[in-house]
């Protein structure tokens, strides 16, 4: 059976195609203002990688913030459900799933059967999501891809008090004026976002094994800060940004 999952994220759209439960294709596009068109393009890319045509896919399930606008789909599942399904398929021992995407950070606690026991999301605030690190990289005039590596070179922990992306940006500017090394500021940024995420994880009562997914999992500086703040090992799957779409594709196999 061929199934697909479409994760209509706020910044990017991800598509995963499965053949008999095995991932055979994936595609990602920037959502932009035309997220449906972006999803169709991502689907085309995933189909090409899988070597199939779109109409060969038997069941398609959407997830993500914009799931109601996904093309081709018969039904949708929530981000929380698809995250857990995807993470548990890869790591059956997962009990806590942390997903840090562009717009939203979330912590989910589940049991051995994959049932969600509790979840917490960052409220109307960018300080617990990828948008925060992007804003800070702009303030530091550092490419987002280099922010993580840079923070690992930090030798001094600089406290950043701001719990808000707007205030944090002004704090970064103040630190720059105070000649604080960019490495230390980058670490402060990651410590701050990790602190927000850990508070979500504590809210749901996290327990190992902790799986980190979402695009921000590529940021090694954030991962380092999160591990230290959680004081436990964090497992990151390959292609962490695709786990939501993977979970949705798995849900489609249950049709």
């Amino acid at each position: 059976m061929i199934t697909a999952g479409i994760d209509m994220g706020s910044k990017t759209v991800k598509v995963v195609i499965l053949r008999d439960g095995e991932m055979v294709g994936k595609g990602m596009m920037v959502a932009g203002f035309e997220s449906r068109a972006a999803a169709e393009a991502a689907f085309a890319a995933a189909s090409e990688e899988a070597g199939i045509k779109v109409d060969e896919v038997q069941h398609i399930v959407a997830t993500g913030a914009g799931r109601k606008f996904a093309p081709y789909t018969e039904r949708s599942v929530t981000d929380v459900a698809s995250d857990v399904k995807g993470a548990m398929a890869l790591y059956p021992g997962a009990r806590t799933v942390i997903d840090v995407g562009a717009e939203e950070g979330r912590a989910i606690r589940c049991n051995a059967e994959g049932k969600v026991l509790d979840f917490a999301l960052n409220e109307k605030c960018a300080a617990g999501a990828g948008a925060f690190t992007e804003a800070m990289s702009r303030a530091l005039e550092v490419e987002i891809e280099k922010l993580g590596e840079m923070s690992l070179k930090s030798r001094n922990a600089v406290p950043m008090n701001a719990q808000c992306a707007v205030f944090a940006e002004s704090e970064v500017v103040s630190l720059l004026h105070a000649k604080t090394p960019k490495e230390d500021i980058a670490r402060a940024v990651h410590d701050a976002i990790a602190s927000r995420i850990v508070s979500l994880a504590r809210k749901v009562g996290f327990e190992p094994e902790v799986i980190l997914i979402g695009g921000v999992a590529h940021n090694v500086g954030f991962v380092d800060s999160l591990g230290k703040a959680l004081q436990c090992e964090v497992t990151i799957p390959n292609d962490p940004e695709y786990i939501g779409a993977y979970g949705a594709a798995l849900a489609a196999t249950e049709e």
Partner: peptide, 28 residues
């Protein structure tokens, strides 16, 4: 389940995200 909002100031309530949160809570 918790959701943020405001009883009398609509500028502080996000209907779409609250409904998305209800979706997740119902699944739970």
């Amino acid at each position: 389940m918790t959701f943020e909002g405001n009883m009398g100031d609509e500028r502080e309530f996000d209907l779409a995200r609250t409904m998305a949160r209800i979706d997740s809570f119902m699944e739970t």
